[in-house]
Write a protein that binds this DNA or RNA. Structure first.
Length: 312
DNA sequence: CTCGATCCCTGGACGC
DNA sequence: TGCGTCCAGGGATCGA
């Protein structure tokens, strides 16, 4: 769920919190989502966190040469490197007092030189962590598309309008644009009044232009609001975001469209639940919309039974 | 090139 | 109450 705005929020928090700190030691839990766990244990201790960057949905902890060494390292640690961190669906990363008990599903702990621990927790382990030196890192990053906040009109249009894939699939494709996920894809398509199943090549120049503009506006506003907390997203300070209150399509199945009051519907596009207004965002002929799975009397009754105060 | 299907993983919602 | 099932979805991978 963490997409560009959420990752940007976490990266900014980390920048404030751990920039310049030195890593003292490494403790690992489950490691099946880590590229090369042994490399973390071997190369992180002694390194200084020189920068925290966001690249699409990745965070990049830039590591400078091991500090204060009285000998030349023989394992390559004199050269710059980076820790690549992807939060997947449920990843969280934050510095904590070492004395604080570790949360369940904590899989990486980096003890810092100020006594705190930078902890990575990830219930579902859809995230990814990798220690990379410069060449492999460059190799890794070159596969990705444009940053949606930086792409020009022309670049955006050429990446979208030259493709026969569905616009939703293109927005989600990290090799086309880096950082957009399911929420911000649906939100930008709603605002641009484009159905998610339209083909990239089908968009007019004007539609591509509009889509780029609203996508940037939405991402920027979401960053200001510190992202969307729909499941369990928390930033590096442990705070939820606020942008979920501004969602106009995502998760609003059966609710009234903010523009035309039609019922927002859901369909599977590019293998993902996609929310849109069937009136504002007309779809290809005969495009299948899923039957509403909204409120049944039974569900309302059940919820009220759990939370009686919800009726007041 | 593009598609859908399948897998990874866990917890919460739901139905019976 | 408890148990089984489905769903959430970013990404990799594979076959059509």
């Amino acid at each position: 769920m963490p997409e560009l705005p959420e990752v940007e929020t976490v990266a900014r928090g980390l920048r404030r919190a751990i920039l310049g700190r030195r890593i003292v030691s490494v403790t690992l839990g489950k490691t099946d989502f880590i590229d090369d766990p042994a490399a973390l244990e071997e190369h992180l201790p002694g390194r200084q966190i020189a920068a925290v960057e966001r690249f699409g949905k990745f965070m990049l902890l830039r590591l400078s040469a091991a500090a204060g060494l009285n000998r030349v390292p023989t394992n390559g640690d004199a050269a710059p490197a980076a820790l690549l961190v992807h939060l997947g669906m449920t990843g969280q990363i934050a510095p904590m007092p070492s004395a604080q008990p570790r949360e369940k599903h904590t899989h990486v702990c980096l003890l810092l030189d100020d006594g705190r621990e930078l902890r990575y927790t990830d219930v579902r382990r859809f995230g990814r962590i990798a220690y990379l030196t410069e060449a492999p890192l460059a190799e890794e990053l070159k596969e990705f598309g444009a940053d949606p906040l930086e792409a020009s009109d022309d670049e955006f249009a050429s990446r979208i309008r030259g493709r026969r894939a569905r616009i939703k699939a293109l927005l989600l494709d990290q090799s086309v644009l880096r950082g957009v996920g399911n929420i911000y894809a649906d939100e930008s398509l709603w605002r641009a009044k484009i159905h998610p199943a339209r083909l990239g090549a089908q968009l007019s120049k004007q539609q591509a232009k509009t889509l780029r503009r609203v996508l940037q506006e939405i991402l920027q506003k979401a960053i200001v609001m510190r992202g969307s907390s729909i499941s369990d997203f928390l930033d590096a300070e442990g705070e939820p975001g606020e942008y979920q209150r501004h969602h106009r399509a995502y998760g609003r199945e059966g609710k009234a469209c903010y523009r035309c009051k039609s019922s927002v519907r859901r369909a599977i596009v590019a293998g993902r639940s996609s929310y849109f207004c069937p009136k504002c965002q007309p779809g290809p002929r005969g495009f299948a919309v899923l039957p509403l799975r909204g409120e049944t009397k039974k569900r309302v009754k059940r919820r009220n039974a759990r939370r009686p105060s919800a009726r007041l």
